[in-house]
Design a protein around this nucleic acid. Sequence first.
DNA 1: GGGACCTTACTGACCTGTCAGTAAGTTGTC
DNA 2: GACAACTTACTGACAGGTCAGTAAGGTCCC
Lengths: 220, 220
Amino acid sequence: MTDVGESVSNPPPIGKVSMRQRRSVQRRLDILRAAMGIFGRRGYQRGSLIEIAEVVGITHAGILHHFGSKDELLIEVLRYRDQADFEELDVDHLPEGLDLFAHLVRTARLNATRPGIVQSYAVLSAESVTDDHPAQEWFRARFAGLRVILADALRDVCAEHVVPAEEDIGAAASVIIGLMDGLQIQWLLDQEAVDLAYTTALGINAVLASLTGGAVAKVE
Amino acid sequence: MTDVGESVSNPPPIGKVSMRQRRSVQRRLDILRAAMGIFGRRGYQRGSLIEIAEVVGITHAGILHHFGSKDELLIEVLRYRDQADFEELDVDHLPEGLDLFAHLVRTARLNATRPGIVQSYAVLSAESVTDDHPAQEWFRARFAGLRVILADALRDVCAEHVVPAEEDIGAAASVIIGLMDGLQIQWLLDQEAVDLAYTTALGINAVLASLTGGAVAKVE
DNA sequence: GGGACCTTACTGACCTGTCAGTAAGTTGTC
DNA sequence: GACAACTTACTGACAGGTCAGTAAGGTCCC
């Protein structure tokens, strides 16, 4: 599942900002954006600091000056991605209840316009399950958090109708996250064959309908 | 989606088999199994021929003698995995109609007992979307084939009830494949938090119910 | 049945390339 | 002049792949 915004601690600049500071912040952003692109296209393992550095126009040692190691850079990229999503979708907090699911479909629609970003997320999340991967804990926590958010929203939606068993709520949350992620991979491999937004909406609506006994309006 | 068996062309041995031939076949199998384990645990990129060779008890050059290159080894591993699934589930042809979906849930139950195999599939399929990945075409073809199989089965199931739009059949097929794959990643990251078989069944049933208007029995 | 001859299954040394990371020097801003 | 933001130059590890050589198996001829 690409992209559900999450608050990111970005300490606001206080007082005067020197030109040097501003340049440094800009460089870090440049590097993060480049890294996101390279990691997306090539994966974390194959994507090298040298490639990233070339995009930015510096040497790979310059990147290590800003981010201590490749692993740290990866974690920062993941954090940055969350924040960027938040801004792009122009929301400052996640919607609740049924609105959350409409938001997810909107996100899928947005994602269909940016394969690079989707790819970075899809590749990294799957890569993270390998032994000792630097992003493993990050993704574990992220999925756990997402499941809670989705479960809350599902409980909301169901409250007015039949209330399903708690285990079904949890399972349905996992299924929605899972189908979004799985569809992204199929879509990345064959964008002609899979309509990301349409299939995502169909899947989410199927889960919602089955949980509420069809008593809920379709999101789109 | 891990594992839907597919017929693999394994030419039957004709006439007498020399000891050398038998040993060679056995070695190839040893290597394939070891490679599957290493690629699963470490990914294709991180998993090295030297690691695989150590498991088998030969040198990495020995592996390259049997398989011309690391890329070729990967493709053979994928082929081998398909074949092994077929045998393990003891089916010689895929079931049709509603039975196919019951089969998918059974597969999920089996998969829950073998994280290594699931991991190899999940990691490799996601890795394959990166630029110039040696398994990209293989996975593209595999997903396309799966979508056709699932779409056929869905049409079967729906035939006795309402017949949905053709695009919804295709989307539903993608969703089922996607949710199985996506759930595997969540499960690999946190096997306590996700019940692979239960969530898979819930997802599949939700899609089936939504497509047929709830007029179909649940699979389990 | 014994030996010549070929093939297969390797090993071990080596080559080339690439990588992350480090240390020391340079430049420009505050 | 102090410090941040670099570059240049390098190291050490490790990767996949090549190649010559070796040991053993199998085949065929006498």
